[in-house]
Design a protein around this nucleic acid. Sequence first.
DNA 1: CCGTTAACCTGAGAGC
DNA 2: TGCTCTCAGGTTAACG
Length: 278
Amino acid sequence: MPELPEIETIKSGLRKVIFGKKIYSAKVVRRDLRFPVPKDLEKLVKNSKILKIKRRSKYIILELTGSVSLIFHLGMSGKLIISISKKQEEFILQKHDHLVFFFENQIQLTFNDARRFGFVDITKSKSDGYIRFAHIGPEPLQKNFNKDYLLRKIEYSERNIKNILMDQKIVAGLGNIYVTEALWKSKINPNRSGKSIKDIECVNLVNSIREVLKKAIKFGGTSLKDFRKVGGEIGYFQNKLNAYAKEKQKCSRGRCKGRIKKILISGRSTFYCSICQK
DNA sequence: CCGTTAACCTGAGAGC
DNA sequence: TGCTCTCAGGTTAACG
């Protein structure tokens, strides 16, 4: 489910409510997520305070006192939900609630994940050194993701550009929706090989990725199905999509008479306009 | 090393 | 109603 803009939206939502707050305790309801919840999580979290709230790629990071970082990955269906004003002993678990963090001021943070493709981890190293971040590519909204970098990664590649951009080792945080949208915006056919992308198209692609992500963040992410902000509200970027899930609809680019097609690339639904995406 | 595919898991919606 | 089938914002082990 959640890609960079959704995780960024969650990060902002968490900052408003739990920044600087103390965690009294954590309750783990179910440990067999994508990876097992670490055995010592409850102990490491108990009586800590939230010092920083960060995002790296599609991960949410809570840096705690005691040089401990809590790390969340939401997989396809994961949610982080804040609720307030229930006493711990009266807290009611919803279906697929797997962890609950009890904060001061009656604040609770719940990790809910129906499909359990997500996971929760904890590290005592600096969060930058977290093992799963080791091979993740640059953040697309930072300067080190630019035309020169991307061109270097794709210029000899036979892979299609869609799979390249979905690859977290190439660039962090993009998934099916935002790659689809960025390719539409740059008028590039998702089946094009990396090496066929011209210099000017690469410039365009980098700019399109940035613009699509920034706009999606501004609208609070895309809620097609599962995505919710920390207060349970939906995002609104689904109203701004031009290609994703727009099968058979008219291409919204000015004067283009095409319709959006749906194809499969590496088993994933892919949407594009066969008229303007060359 | 590189790239592709299958598998992980549950729920929603379509078609019958 | 209910059954079966397909599909879903992701990642990665296994394979060629």
